[in-house]
Amino acid sequence: MPRNPTAAASESAVARAETRRRWSLALPALTVITLCSILPLGVMVAYSFMEAGQYGNVQWGFSLEGWRAVFLDRDFFDDSYIPATAHLTILARSILLALATTALTFVFGIPTAWFIATRPPATRAYWMFLITVPFWTNLLVRTIAIQEVIRADGTLNRLLLATGLIDEPLQMMFTNGAVLVGMTYVYLPLMVLPVYAAIEKFDFRLAEAAYDLHASRLYCLRRVVLPLMWPGIVAGSILVFIPALGAYVTPRLMGGGRAMMWGNLIDLQFGQGRNWPLGAALSITLTLVVVGAMVWYARRAAKGDATNG
């Protein structure tokens, strides 16, 4: 079909103007993403391939030492390479503790969210306020507060001693359990908020319809309530799991040096360890683990959707 050249030209001019307009609209978001996400990540990747400086920092020059140290230790006696089992242990503990934190925030968060969402609308804001108050408090202060509760001479032990349930104070600090308690407390709101939103959005007339259609309460929960709340539960779990995996303030205060997590390991390299390339490589490793888990989950969810739908 013969085309009018001028019309075609003006058409493409319009298309170009449209493209320009879209880019300019996306510019603020792109700037923020570049500055706050891609750039720092790039710096970390670059650092992980450099040489460690004497007093911390990095020296120019390509080196795989940082990455080597993530996976392999140098044997103390003969300088041969052996797997860095300490790192593996810490990674395993981090993942387990993050999973356990997610599970505990789930166990405590769902009933809490349910309770709030089923209050009269006027009082819901009040309950939400109570849930979010700790969130406005400094993380350090919150962690020290929970420390105060489970310390050897803390509130809980004094209470148990006073009631005669125990004769000697329980040693709860500086254990994996202490880290778990602290993290559950700190991350609970992150589970409650999205789950609350999902429950609040849930149309209770659907539960009534299920009940009318011969469903028992349990059947209704399984077939109607849970599937519709699922996105909220997933969002809450992701919101808790990811920061819990990289947490370091709470594990440090509650776990001391004994129950170290990946975040503390990274912290160590940038502090006393003065091994920035290793710290950077450890950070990237954590990022990759998280991204890997997310991709796996997204794939699975997509597949589940395809088979269900």
Partner: peptide, 22 residues
């Protein structure tokens, strides 16, 4: 007798269809 055991079913004004099901 609770609703799930009554031989009675309802067509709701809002329909109340389960949105996640076909």
């Amino acid at each position: 007798i609770p609703p799930n055991h009554r031989p009675v079913n309802t067509v709701f004004q809002s329909y109340a269809l389960f949105p996640h099901m076909t």
